[in-house]
């Protein structure tokens, strides 16, 4: 059994851990750290429920080794709200009813967060492309797209 010592930043906090080399980032977050907001849907990189930000970019945590993240920065759904304040995206997902069963929601919000971090004026196509790797079985995506558009508009309004 091969194990490694890793040091990484998770939601702004420095974390030291010993991990098995074959442990995925997803299982590390869920089972070792109890951060169960990141969901397990397929374990094959095909559903996006496990999306987290790795150094700011959206990745499938099921296709990432925990040990691979040594020295890097990971943001999960639990890391978005600060001081009890939801992000505009989280609020818009609530307001627009952009979720039903909610199982894809954390991953969906992480992908959308990554988009809005770099593109404050996304077109509808750009939004759909940003969430192309996040499957949703309930909503038909329409309300999700609408919530992301509304969050972008809100952020632009805040900038202005």
């Amino acid at each position: 059994m091969h194990k490694s010592m890793i040091n990484l930043t998770i939601n702004g906090d420095e974390v030291d851990a010993v991990v098995k080399d074959n442990l995925t980032l997803l299982d590390f977050l869920r089972d070792q750290l109890g951060l169960t907001g990141t969901k397990k849907g397929c374990e094959e990189g095909e559903c996006g429920a496990c999306t987290v930000l790795l150094d700011g970019l959206p990745v499938n945590s099921c296709c990432t080794l925990a040990v691979e993240c040594n020295g890097r920065e990971v943001t999960t759904i639990e890391g978005l709200a600060r001081n009890g304040q939801l992000t505009p995206l989280q609020r818009q997902f609530i307001d627009k009813w952009a979720l039903q069963c909610g199982y894809c929601t954390p991953g969906m919000i992480m992908s959308a967060t990554a988009l809005l971090n770099t593109n404050h004026h996304p077109t509808e196509l750009e939004i759909r492309e940003a969430i192309e790797g996040n499957l949703c079985r309930c909503t038909g995506y329409a309300k999700i797209v609408e919530a992301i558009q509304a969050a972008a508009a809100e952020m632009n309004w805040e900038e202005a």
């Binding site: 951060l35 169960t36 307001d95 929601t105």
Partner: peptide
């Protein structure tokens, strides 16, 4: 009105069986 479970779902705090 909004969904009573929405905040739990957008924050990742909601518990599904695997959680």
């Amino acid at each position: 009105y909004v969904r009573i479970d929405a905040e739990d779902k957008v924050t990742g705090h909601g518990q599904y069986v695997g959680d």
